[in-house]
Design a protein around this nucleic acid. Structure first.
Lengths: 207, 207
DNA sequence: AGACTGACAGATGTTGACTTTTGTCATCGC
DNA sequence: GCGATGACAAAAGTCAACATCTGTCAGTCT
């Protein structure tokens, strides 16, 4: 009988399923191995530690968050509206994960608390997406900014309440959407947002 | 021999000292009573529960935070500079507390996690101080705002990273002051900050 | 009579013996 | 030889017996 080869990919799928079922507190490497019908020693042939396995699961999962955001960031339209949609989508995605996949979300929250590398990379990816939108906006004359990267981080910090899982318990507060509106409107002003001048549409003027 | 009467005030002092020594996890009502040389039953004559006692200690402590801030909020000078100083002082005070009084700070962090009333009042007090500065700024023609109270809350949410104790572990990061600068500069723009027009100094124009 | 006590019940926390889990590695089978 | 195994040591987690703590109240002292 042909057994399917044990690959990192298959382990990740099984691990995600096990995490989804038992949560980060109860899921063990033995559970993952059992789901695959192998010994737990075999899992250690593909991942150096349980932590590495958990990080890898989280990384896949975080990529599924940042991919739709990357699409928005790469759009061509007006930057202020795009940034608004991007931030709204980020908040919406995180909230949805927290609601619909509480066990995987708990795994992510643990990673954030540990300040693990996966999270740093994820956050940097997102900040660079914001920076891209801001740069577009500056080129299109819609934003007034000295340094889009610094501003991108500032936007990220200022909206922490709406995407950092440490604040997840506040996401069901009744006033949270109004709070988001308030912060957004402050940020839009802080970025010097205005209608793109018609001339800038055709060809951005120098500097 | 004349024993000093057992008052709520004396209990609070002893409780604060006990909390400072043992932290919120280890301090007991019996410890507080022992420090005062009375039975723990007597403490319950003045506070209905351990929680109420802890809240009362935290309230005293939080007042010591918000009082110097209230002084800054009540100053007369230019509002943008005043807001900047107010936010900087808030951040500085919280960081100092976290560094110098870790046990009392842990008590406060627990209260925040429990979403207790004392904290809600503290946060509302602070937001109203911000609102006051913003209102002054609008009257002096230094800010452009539809609704200073909404903006005050937005400022508060956007700066959560720099005063919410849930983020205390990030306050020793090397980049934290730069992050604060970045967020501040975004906020200042978002408030429509500008030099106060000379005419406004004498008498604010209507609306 | 009112402030305080101390014994008490139920809730909460601690301890330590025991179980499970993580991670390693010599060995196996294809 | 390569991937997998399973026996093993060390680390971490469980759980029940035990200890402490919270909150109450009948009763003492002044």
């Amino acid at each position: 009988m042909v057994e399917e080869a044990l690959t990192a990919e298959r382990i990740l799928e099984a691990a995600e399923e096990v995490l989804r079922r038992f949560g980060p507190a109860k899921a063990t490497v033995v559970d993952v191995a059992r789901a695959l019908g192998v010994s737990h020693g075999s899992v250690y042939r593909h991942f150096p530690s349980k932590t590495a396995l958990r990080d890898a699961v989280a990384e896949r999962w975080l990529t599924r968050v940042s991919k739709p955001l990357a699409e928005v960031a790469a759009e061509k339209g007006p930057a202020p509206e795009r940034l608004r949609r991007w931030l709204g989508l980020l908040f919406e995605l995180k909230r949805k994960k927290a609601r619909d996949e509480p066990e995987l979300f708990a795994t992510y929250t643990n990673l954030v608390a540990d300040a693990r590398d996966v999270v740093r990379v994820h956050v940097e990816t997102l900040a660079m997406q914001v920076a891209r939108i801001l740069t577009d906006g500056v080129e299109q004359g819609e934003f007034t900014l000295d340094d889009p990267v610094t501003s991108a981080w500032a936007v990220f910090h200022a909206t922490a309440r709406f995407h950092n899982p440490i604040h997840a318990s506040e996401w069901s507060d009744p006033g949270i959407d109004a709070a988001f509106e308030g912060v957004w409107s402050l940020l839009r002003g802080g970025l010097g947002a205005r209608e793109a001048p018609a001339k800038a549409r055709a060809k951005p003027s120098k500097k």
